Amino acid sequence: MYHTKRIAIILPDTLQSSGLQSILTEYFAPVETNCFSTYESFMATGGDIFDYYFTLSETFVLNVDFFLPRKSKTVILSDCPLCGASQSAYTNLLTVRAPLETLIEQIQQLFENDVTNLGTGEGNKELSAREVEVLQLVVKGTINKEIADKLNISLNTVLSHRKNITAKLGIKTVSGLIFYAIMHGIISAEDIDL
């Protein structure tokens, strides 16, 4: 059903590489990750055989000729906690000091943006039955892990549904989703814990 994503992790820090590899394997299967401590060792594989590239800004800048044409599939790891808020249109930033759930959401967004770009036309504005269930739980303040447990789906699937809901409705905030859900009869105002 899904094709295995081939991911190159180009980081000199073994601990960062292993942690990122663990997150990708656990939450985004099926993936095949390869870790490289240097850009040179990465290029020895041919380089172009990967679907995504995770690296540092220094590596990106020093090898801009390779990464720039692949900017939509390149993720730059940032140590700056404020950098994720000012994300550039030309790069995908992953804030390494962010909580795990934030990291997962940032990676999920990268993968879904790539899938969205392959599609044709605008997304369907109508929510599926499962998306409505997820929306009901989101507006009630349920966290992603609890949604996954309640609906017996993976955390990755919950994140996909949330991304699809946001894309279809064009609403990015929980407060906006609450308003939408009340206005469309998906939940009543009494269902919300304020």
Results as ranks from 00 to 15, higher is better:
E126R: 03
L127H: 08
L127V: 07
S128F: 00
S128P: 00
S128Q: 03
S128W: 00
S128A: 05
A129G: 06
A129W: 09
R130W: 02
R130A: 11
E131G: 02
V132S: 05
V132C: 04
E133P: 02
E133L: 03
V134G: 03
L135T: 08
L135M: 08
L135K: 05
L135N: 05
Q136P: 02
L137Y: 14
L137E: 15
L137V: 01
L137D: 15
V138Y: 03
V138W: 04
V138K: 05
V139S: 06
V139D: 09
G141L: 03
G141N: 08
T142W: 04
T142M: 09
T142S: 13
T142R: 04
T142Q: 11
I143Y: 15
I143A: 10
I143R: 15
N144V: 12
K145N: 09
E146R: 02
E146W: 00
E146H: 06
I147C: 08
I147V: 14
I147W: 10
A148N: 06
A148M: 04
D149C: 01
D149K: 11
K150M: 11
K150T: 14
L151I: 12
N152M: 07
N152P: 00
N152K: 10
N152Q: 13
I153E: 04
I153M: 09
I153L: 02
I153V: 15
S154I: 03
S154K: 06
S154T: 15
L155A: 12
L155M: 14
L155D: 15
L155P: 05
N156H: 07
T157C: 02
T157P: 00
T157M: 06
V158N: 01
L159W: 09
L159E: 13
L159S: 11
S160E: 15
S160Q: 14
H161M: 08
H161F: 08
H161A: 06
R162K: 15
K163R: 14
K163M: 07
K163D: 12
N164Y: 05
I165Y: 08
I165P: 05
I165A: 06
I165N: 06
T166C: 05
T166N: 02
T166K: 09
T166L: 00
T166V: 12
T166W: 00
T166D: 04
A167K: 13
A167W: 12
A167L: 14
K168Q: 13
K168P: 04
K168E: 07
L169G: 08
L169V: 05
L169C: 07
I171A: 07
I171S: 10
I171P: 04
